[in-house]
Structure formats: C-alpha cells, structure tokens
Design a protein around this nucleic acid. Sequence first.
DNA 1: TTGTCTCAG
DNA 2: GATTCTGAGACAA
Length: 614
Amino acid sequence: MQGLHKLQLVKEAKRICPDLVIVLGEDLTPFRNASKALYRFVRAFSWNDRVERLGFDELWLDVTDQIDYNLALLNPHDLARSFFHLSRDHPTHGFAFDATSFAGTTFPSLTESPSPSDMTQTQDSATLRLLLTSHLARFLRNQLELHKNLTATAGISTNKLLSKLVGNLNKPNGQTTLLPPYFGEHSNVTAFVDAHDVAKIPGIGFKLAQKLREFVLHRPATFDDGLVYGGTRETVKVGHVRNHPELNVETLEKLLGGPGSPHGIAVKVWGLLHGADHSEVRAARDTPKQISIEDSYLRLDSLDQVVKELRMLAISLLKRMHADLLEEEDEHDQDGATAGPDSSCKQARAERPARLEKRRWIAHPATLRLSTRPRPPLNADGTRTRTFARISRSAPVPNFIFSLSTPIESLAERLVNDALLPLFRRLHPEKTGWNLSLVNVAVTNMAEAGSNAKSSSGRDITSMFQKQAAPSIHSEPARKLLPANHVPKMDVNSGADAVAADQDSRAEFGCAAEAASSPMEEPAAPLPPRPQLSHDSFSTVFTSPDARTGSEDLLVPIASKDSRSDVDGGEMDDFNDGSGGDGDADDLGLCECEACGATMPAWALAGHARFHAP
DNA sequence: TTGTCTCAG
DNA sequence: GATTCTGAGACAA
C-alpha cells in the first residue's frame, strides 16, 4: 500500500512507486477461477440459495431463513452458550457461540453488551437477529480463511444497501453490524447514510449524482475537469439532499425522471437516500447471462489487424464458453446433490480419462454480439467530438460453435469468417478510415439447456420447490462473502435469477413484501414522503474480500494449499467458530441426544431439544 | 430483438 | 466522464 489507486496515470504511479512493474495486458482467468470458487464455497452454506455476486469479489447472502430458524431454537435463559445450526437435518452441524454479544464490531460502537432481557423481548428481536447474523458472518469468514486461505470483510444489516455500506467500515478482514434502531428519531440508519457522499450510494452513479449535486448547489456541479488533478469537488452528502427543503419524491421525479429514465427512479433514489432498499438478494445462478471478451488498442485501423484480433478474441470467447457453460456428464451422481462437496466430485471427474466425451452444454447462448469503440474523430474545427462509447451489431450464434469435437482454433476461425466479419462490416461499412480503440465479442441470450434438475451444483432447482436441506459445508474454494438479507417473495421465475426466497417470518417480523404494502410504507400516497426501511427481517451479511495482499479489491488467485483444503471438510459436526472471541466454545464434553442420538456439547442439549419439539 | 445507456467492481 | 475488462438491468425503437 504505497498510495497507488486505480485509474492513476502510470507516470504518477511510477513517481510514487519507482519499483512498480507494469504488465501490459491481463489474464483474468485466475481471478475468475478464484471468484467462482469463492462463490461455490459460500453458496454451500446457504439454505435458500440466495447468494448474489457483485463483480468478482463481493457477495450478498440472504440468511433470513437461517436466522429465523436459529432464533426460534435459542434458549433465552442461557444465551451465552448458544449453538448456531447450519443444517435443519443435522442438528449437530453448526457452531457454538455466545449470543450475549455481537461478533465483530458494530456501528455505532457498543459500549456494553445488549442486555439479554432486552434482546429476548420480541420488540427487540431485531437486535438479536442481527447479533445472530454477526456470528454467522464471522463463522463464514473463519471458514473461508481456514479452508481457502482468504480473508474477507462483512457487513451485516437488513438490506443490500446497508450491508454493503456498513461493510466498508472495518475494511481489511473485519466485519460490522449496523445496530438498531433502524427507525424513528434516533435511527442509526439515517445517521449513518446521511454522512455519505451521494455518489457513494450504490445505485447512484455518476449521472444521478451530478443531477443531485446540481440541484442542491443551485449550479452545475463541477467535476474533475478532464484528467486534471486537484479540480475542486464539491461534496454533497446524502443528508444535504435528504434534508433539502425543496427535495421530495415529486421534485426528485422531475429532476431524475423523464424519457430514458427507469420508471420509479425517484422513489427508488429517495429510498436509497433513506437507507431503504427493497431489492432482493437474487438467487444464485449456475450460468452467467452473457460472456464477453474484449481488448483495447492504441490503434486498430486495418482489416488485417482486425481479423487477427477477432481470431484471438474468438478463441478466448470459446474457451470461456467451455469453462462456464459446459458440464461434465454425471453418470452416477447420487451424492452430488446433497452430500458431497461439489469440489471433490468435480475433481474426481476431472481425472477420468474419457472426460472429453462426457461434456455437455448447460446453456446455449442465442446471440452473438460484436462491439467496437471507434476513436472519436479528431475535430480540428468547431465540430464537437461526439464521443459515444460503443457501437454494436448482433446476430444469431452459429450452431457449429457448440461442437465439442472440433478444435477451438478451427471453430474460432470459422466464427470469424462466418459471423464476426459480417458483423464487423455492418458496423464499419467504410473500407477504411476507422480507428478502433476497443473490440468486444460477446454471447448473450442464454437458453438454459433444460435437461434435468440435476445440475452439478445440485441445489438450484430443488430449492425452488422446497426448503432444502443443509448445505454440505465442505470445501470449494471461496474468496469473499457478502451481505445477506431477506427477501419477500417466492420469485421462482424471472428467467434469470430468482430462486425461492424463503420467507416465512411473519411472526414478529413480517416479511419485506408485506412491509412494503402495509403499515410500514406510506399507503396510497402516490409518492411516499419518507420511505421506511422495510423493517422486517432482513439479516444481511455483506462481505467484501480482502485480498491477502492487502490491496483492496484485488482477487488473489487461490494458493496451492487450497487444493488440499478441497479434500478436507468431510465433517462439519461440532465445529465452533474458532474465533476465540467466544472462548467458552472450546473443549466441551460431548453428550448424546436421547431423541436422535446426535452428539453435541452438553450445554447445547437444551437448545437442541427444541429441535425435536412439536 | 437490437442497440444504447447506466451502474457496478 | 474517461481510463480497463467485465457483467447486469433497463429503456427506446
């Protein structure tokens, strides 16, 4: 950490760090692999499969179901000796923890532990829920470190927005829980969110931020001019916007709405400014919605060069398709679904000699797209440079690219000649005169190769129909984790990602969906004045990975020891969270449950007994 | 469906 | 508002 940041000029970077080695070009493969491994690892802990990725190294988990379950099993009279169940089916799968204090840090910081009597009263179950979630988050982080040698940072709150923001507080290798109250005068939410620059709010990007700044400053916001450093940046905080006398949902709609803008943008942004975020943690996916490969160039202006580059891009794209859309056929995949760790199964399969013949496509992209970024034509005279970024043309994916018996190089060659070059001619009809700074080749419109419900991950489809059993906890590489929150509906469709959100929680919490349409939210008013958080049950764990390097958002390829850890993880029973923080979890004598024969720490028996309760 | 835009890391 | 290499969602036509 020597003060280098992203987008820094190379010159500047070298000045600060003379030893800097610049590597041109990059191969994201190791990062992509690490990212997948992280995803798989964390996903195995989820009951509802609501695990959403953001970029390579962030995840949100909606762990509402697990928190509901564990809250119900908690013994209010002995919170210090609690046991967190990671499985509904295996009462001994889980970890010991002390439910009288939060794991990790909280915001605001807590001077003393919440009193047990407070917490166990239903009206304050929000605190207890978040507390449980903090222990789950710490446990997951510990597992990640133990099995994958990856550290992670987590944020715990009730929705994606808050979990992500609060996750920034204790950055490398820490975790933070946003404490209640989430509503009312002394809400920690508004206090917390208000202090952020508007542009720091996920969902408020450059354009929206500029409009908001302009509105509160009453003049065009100045942003960094060009690449000049030191341009003044007037900071506009969320609080400035939220408390601006003339700003409300109506005026916001005028400011941000209009043609081209997403519907309900004002309501959405107004919500974000208040810490409200009703977006769900989406269900985990087995396949991406698109795969794209691109490269940028200083100058690309001859057809020869273009053909050459298209060939390279086509090869990369085909490799990516093979890596991401191909699955080994599973002859006897009994164990895959519920028992074994995906990783060890896959490894075993990979060692089989005839595996090449066994692969099949789990998704077929229907559309091929070629995009370029023409370098803006220099305008010596007054004409302004119209610098729209990318232009693209698309066409159906030719079927031959799915051939598994043809060498990728041959497929690529044909792909270029039959499909990409025609697209290129459509994009750039002129024979010459263009100069490209970027070329991108993508496949989109994935059609899942339906087949059966037995994907390699084995969890996706079944989880749509019922609450699934316990995740098999063992290994698979992992990298970072994320926030979890809880979501409302059973949104099984929606093409892409929507798996079942498990939602019961109606008791004292009430699900988000309900909250949205009932008391919580301002009723019929076309534009709700002050959006409330949907206070329900969200329990979010948000984590962002800390690369071991200490750099912020760099994914570190999994080290060699990871492959060994893939083999472990056979048994999950009776492990504790190893944090040391809840020290009493160690060295406990094991007892056997009379009802089911399960073994567990003696003190866990009482809580466990409720497991058998009618 | 196609192409563009915005937002995210 | 641009830089890199992605990926996703939403809108207009």
